[in-house]
């Protein structure tokens, strides 16, 4: 067995969910590696999903994260990329499936986590936009800031988030209220939540997906017939959602 084969066999023995004795590796030593691998990923989940952790409690979250790690190998050498399918996992897992808002809370936390580590981008200069002839505005498509995300949720995500922050801990949450969110990163590099008005989620989502301004406006109007286009445009300009104008292809 050459060294590469041996290394792959060792990695497999460390990451495989079920313990299998392997004559090539001393059981005691392998157990240390297996434990470190599992505990490292579980602790990462607790860091990425602090609200889910608080919602479920220490013991439950730990047991849940153990199940997730068993079912989900790490696909990247970068631990910050681990855990993106946690929302789908809790939506399907039999002991969490009844907590209907939990997957969206996990999606919020994943978007905040990925947004924090997303590459930097300069916001679009207002002058650049103003310099384009008005008759072409509708055809414009944009590159958006990589940290931005839209969560079009039927749950009160802003309130649930606030409920679990030290400064606003325990504030009231009305589960009947939908709070779609725009996530953006401020000039200090911190992720911020902005609660979206009706139609704005569809508008912002379309822009993030590279739609033209005309199509994004139509998406906003289709979602809500009294959609305030001017407020939505101001919102994306002020929060640095738009980063550059895409060349027409």
């Amino acid at each position: 067995m050459n060294e590469t084969t041996w290394q792959h066999a060792l990695l497999d023995a460390i990451t495989t969910p079920q313990w299998q004795p392997d004559p090539r590796f001393p059981a005691g030593a392998l157990a240390v590696y297996r434990n470190n691998y599992r505990v490292g990923l579980m602790e990462m989940l607790a860091l990425v999903y602090p609200i889910c952790h608080q919602l479920l409690g220490e013991e439950f979250f730990e047991a849940l994260s153990r199940e997730y790690v068993k079912a989900t190998p790490s696909a990247s050498g970068n631990l910050h990329r681990y855990g993106g399918s946690f929302a789908d996992f809790v939506a399907a897992f039999e002991h969490t499936a009844h907590i209907a808002y939990l997957p969206d809370v996990a999606r919020l936390e994943w978007a905040l986590h990925r947004g924090y580590y997303a590459p930097d981008a300069t916001p679009l200069a207002i002058a650049t936009l103003a310099a384009i002839p008005q008759q072409h505005w509708g055809e414009l498509r944009f590159c958006c800031h990589p940290a931005c995300a839209v969560l079009d949720s039927r749950w009160p995500l802003a309130d649930i988030h606030a409920h679990h922050q030290p400064a606003t801990a325990g504030c009231a949450v009305d589960m009947a209220t939908a709070q779609p969110l725009l996530l953006w990163r401020d000039s200090d590099g911190l992720m911020q939540l902005h609660q979206l008005a009706p139609g704005q989620a569809a508008f912002c989502q379309a822009l993030l997906h590279g739609a033209t301004l005309d199509d994004a406006s139509a998406a906003g109007l289709a979602a809500y017939n009294e959609f305030d286009l001017q407020a939505a445009l101001l919102l994306v300009l002020q929060h640095g959602v738009l980063s550059a104008i895409k060349e027409p292809s």
Partner: peptide, 28 residues
């Protein structure tokens, strides 16, 4: 979550699911 943290904690490999959520989801 680096592996150097792992050694301080031994994970029990639970096979049976008997946990009940006890966090803020019960209070909200």
């Amino acid at each position: 979550g680096h592996s150097c943290a792992g050694q301080s904690k031994m994970d029990k490999d639970g096979t049976e699911w008997k946990y009940v959520a006890k966090g803020s989801c019960t209070k909200m």
